[in-house]
């Protein structure tokens, strides 16, 4: 391949991951040192760290999309989800750990949007790791004060008659927004519906896609 250079190959002949061929930063040295100390002290093992990374990599917004699609199609599940979202998603088979989850329903009258002004709390056990913008100073500072302007930057323009509810994820709860089911989706099955559910629609900075 034209982009291959010998000095980008590890001794095993495989290319390094992209972060492996730049000079180490102080903080990367610290990560290696802390990790090796934790292994030497018996707190964890290399295998356990790999397994944890794999588990986090396996989580993605497609998990949340399945929850939304089911809520759109199964009234009993929908009711269970709004009563106790942790129990309902666990019941669906998602490994959400100790996460306390609250589902927020978007309707024609109410639009919910989630932010964490204190840090970067996010329903990571259901949606995976948060996008960079969610952790940005701008999103955290502005969403609680001018949510409509922030939503407009994301392409979501709400009528004045819709109430915006901002949820500041300040403590032990995590939030997932259940977006409105798009029109013209009456004939679609759960799988086709789930494909319309974006990550941003479950944070509240987007809407579900039209079919």
């Amino acid at each position: 391949m034209p982009h291959d250079h010998h000095d980008h190959l590890s001794p095993s002949g495989h290319p390094y991951r992209p972060d492996n061929d730049h000079p180490l930063t102080y903080w990367q040295q610290m990560e290696i040192a802390v990790r090796e100390l934790l292994i030497e002290k018996g707190v964890t093992t290399a295998a356990e760290i790999s397994a944890q990374i794999d588990a986090m990599d396996a989580r993605s917004p497609t998990d949340g999309a399945k929850v939304v699609a089911r809520a759109w199609t199964d009234p009993a599940f929908r009711e269970a989800l709004f009563a106790d979202a942790s129990a309902a998603t666990r019941e669906m088979g998602f490994d959400i750990g100790p996460m306390r989850l609250i589902a927020l329903e978007n309707t024609a009258e109410v639009h919910n949007v989630v932010v964490c002004t204190l840090c970067s709390c996010y329903p990571r056990n259901l949606l995976g790791l948060p996008p960079d913008w969610y952790k940005s100073r701008a999103y955290r500072a502005r969403t609680v004060k001018e949510p409509r302007k922030v939503l407009a930057e994301f392409g979501v323009d709400l009528p004045d008659g819709t109430t915006v509810r901002v949820h500041d994820s300040t403590a032990d709860m995590r939030y997932v927004v259940i977006p409105m089911r798009p029109e013209g989706t009456e004939g679609l099955d759960e799988e086709a519906l789930a494909a319309l559910v974006t990550r941003d629609s479950m944070i509240g900075t987007g809407l579900a896609k039209a079919p």
Partner: peptide
């Protein structure tokens, strides 16, 4: 990056 994922994993563990 891998090292970022490792930091995340170390925190969780």
């Amino acid at each position: 990056a891998l090292w970022e994922k490792r930091v995340d994993a170390l925190l969780v563990i």
